[in-house]
Design a protein around this nucleic acid. Structure first.
Lengths: 213, 213
DNA sequence: ACAAAATTTGACTCTGGAGTCAATAGATGA
DNA sequence: TCATCTATTGACTCCAGAGTCAAATTTTGT
């Protein structure tokens, strides 16, 4: 909570600005990896700095606090993630059930494979100072919307049954956020099966029973 | 990780032992309240001490470390919690669906009303040093078993449908662990409704669709 | 009433991690 | 080449919270 550099700055020159932007991007992406893998508390700025082969001081040249850096990291990570899901949603043809299944499967796969701790960062608003809290809330909203749209459409068409869309979404997200923990030890085919099973289980939350016979 | 007093001790006398036991119980219960409400990291030993009107040093007279105290607290809390659910399970008459619904409802109610942060302590094994990890794992197992029994029975009788019992349980627990966060701002009737809706939603995980018409 | 045992205190150390900053090194452009 | 802007360093402060311990206080048994 100190200097107000943030990411923007009085321009120095065209090239220099680009260079700076590139550096910021490197930092944010590295931070996203680390925070996404281990969580906020488990990652120190020294960790981030070391991964980048610089010292902590440098990070403070670009970001005023750990929380700003973390927020930026989460935003980057969340944007990319959401974009992937949105792309899937656009491409998809067929019933709502198929799309929802695809989304769930992909979401769990990303979580388990790439960012085991990331969803927890969204899930509980660990008292982010209000500024960041809003940014994260908005991000969460966009992310949520991808799923919400399918479910509402499915409910509208009578394909899905739910008690309440919000509750259904919360349950899905809660389960998916935990999944990296459950599947951490599984590899290859076993992991793939587990992901599929979880997907099928979550489909039941919209009234889609798994094939019985 | 120091002195090995733990809770036991070379006996001083009958009465003194009882007194000590009583004190330990007070401490553990207070700790359970605090850890259960705010979580492990958010509670310092000074907090616990203050609530008891003593100083931190006293706590170390009874427990060798924060983790030991926390583990004891979680065990107490979990034992009581599990006992309540087991009692419900015994009393219950009627179909599996009714029992499961009752268990879920009660579980969520306890979580939301009494120990908003407690389930998280179980849910991720925040790298407890192996000794404690085992105790917690066992506790979790007993807790889990209450639900597992009903679900397996229900599946056996063809009343429930699941993809895999473990997965179903994990989803339920994940959702219930988050529920205190979702319902934190609700009071009275609104909270009651939310809990019921969540219960109904989770019942769908065993193939029990909510009344539609 | 008194010594021994049990308990409690409070001031202490130690550590990890956030955040600061003057000094230095490197890049840029005239 | 030199002055200036940009980036980086590393040694620093600060703080919260775990854990320690000798000394003081309280309880107990005789």
């Amino acid at each position: 909570m100190a200097r107000q550099e943030l990411t923007e700055r009085a321009p120095g020159s065209e090239r220099i600005q680009r260079k700076r932007g590139k550096r910021v991007k490197e930092i944010v992406e590295t931070a996203a990896e680390l925070f996404g893998e281990h969580g906020y508390d488990a990652v120190s700025l020294d960790d981030v700095a070391e991964r980048l082969d610089v010292t902590k001081g440098s990070l403070y040249y670009y970001f005023p606090s750990k929380e700003e850096l973390a927020t930026a990291a989460i935003e980057t990570l969340g944007d990319e993630w959401t974009a992937r899901l949105e792309r899937l949603a656009e491409q998809h043809e067929g019933g709502h059930a198929g799309l929802l299944r695809t989304l769930l499967h992909e979401h769990i796969t990303i979580a388990v494979r790439d960012y085991p701790a990331a969803l927890r960062l969204f899930l509980f608003p660990r008292a982010w100072p209000t500024a960041q809290a809003d940014r994260i809330k908005e991000l969460r909203g966009r992310h949520d919307a991808v799923f919400r749209r399918v479910i509402e459409a499915g409910v509208g068409d009578g394909e899905f049954i739910v008690t309440r869309v919000d509750t259904t979404l919360q349950c899905m997200h809660a389960a998916m956020a935990q999944s990296p923990l459950w599947f951490a030890r599984l590899r290859g085919k076993a992991r793939g099966n587990a992901i599929t099973e979880l997907t099928e289980t979550l489909m039941m939350l919209v009234g889609q029973l798994p094939r019985t016979g």
